[in-house]
Write a protein that binds this DNA or RNA. Structure first.
Length: 276
DNA sequence: CTAGCTTCCTGATAGC
DNA sequence: TGCTATCAGGAAGCTA
């Protein structure tokens, strides 16, 4: 559910609500979502800490703490993060509650419990989270055709699968790989070895463009965000290919088809995205 | 090194 | 109505 654009929305909305707030109490309702350190230590380390900033790296959220320790969060499929008044109704599947010094609470809700938190103290290294394995941010100036080509042109895997490889470009998931390949006119199962310089060029331009558009389309107020807490992000109106199987292509009128690529459902236009 | 499969988990939906 | 099967997909773990 949350993809890079939604993670960025969460960051943008929550940062002003958290900066300068300190944590009065930590309630771990489900230990499963705490990846590091053990839940008890996690809770002990976080209490009395003060938030000083919030960043995003790929699909990770990074909470900067005044002590220079950091809190990392990956929302995976169904993670949701809300700042609510203390008497706000408690959602089912709430796994972590941080009581803040202004009477608000930072709550983590996750139906499928795939999301994870890491508390990393200033003496520890961030490899614990896996974040150091991430590749370029989609908006990095180094993300040019030559970078993609040099990283991928020898790969026998499909371009669709490689767009999901977080060690190449961080932040692309199944929805945006469908969108990007549609906009580039590339059939999802095309092997990386079959792509041309024009394809690498198109990909390098489309990746930041499409993700920037998605972030823009995701703009909402803090009130709208809280009100729509359980809202599905998928199938938003600006998506052109993802989930459109059986519907006509807005460019050529052909009917979008759906195939499975590397275990992921993929929609494509059979005319605009020709098989090589 | 890669390919391919499984695991984690719940809820929505399809089919009988 | 009520049961079971399937699918959704991010990322890691496993086997060959």
């Amino acid at each position: 559910m949350p993809k890079l654009p939604e993670v960025e929305t969460v960051r943008r909305i929550l940062e002003p609500q958290l900066i300068g707030r300190s944590i009065k109490k930590v309630e771990v309702l489900n230990k499963q979502i705490i990846a590091h350190p053990a839940a008890k230590q996690f809770a002990g380390s976080l209490s009395a800490q003060k938030f000083s900033g919030m960043d995003r790296r790929g699909k990770f959220l990074i909470f900067q703490l005044e002590s220079s320790a950091r809190l990392f969060l990956h929302l995976r499929m169904t993670g949701q993060l809300l700042v609510t008044p203390r008497d706000y109704p408690c959602e089912k599947h709430t796994h972590l509650v941080l009581h803040l010094d202004n009477g608000m609470q930072l709550r983590y809700i996750d139906v499928r419990r795939f999301g994870r938190f890491w508390y990393i103290d200033s003496k520890e290294t961030e490899n614990i989270t896996g974040i150091d394995k991430l590749g370029l941010e989609p908006f990095d100036k180094q993300l040019i055709a030559e970078y993609l080509k040099s990283r991928l042109f020898q790969k026998k895997k499909s371009i669709k699968e490689m767009l999901h490889d977080q060690s190449v470009v961080a932040g692309i998931g199944n929805i945006y790989s469908d969108e990007i390949l549609y906009l580039c006119g590339i059939y999802p199962e095309t092997k990386c070895t079959e792509l041309s310089d024009t394809d690498w060029e198109k990909l390098s331009r489309t990746i930041p463009q499409e993700l920037a558009l998605a972030i823009k389309e995701n703009k909402m107020s803090a009130e709208e965000y809280l009100a729509g807490k359980g809202k599905e992000y998928r199938n938003t109106p600006f998506l052109k290919a993802y989930g459109h199987d059986g519907m006509p292509c807005p460019v050529c009128g052909s009917i979008f088809e759906r195939i499975t690529v590397a275990g992921r459902s993929s929609c494509y236009c059979p005319k605009c995205q020709k098989m090589r």
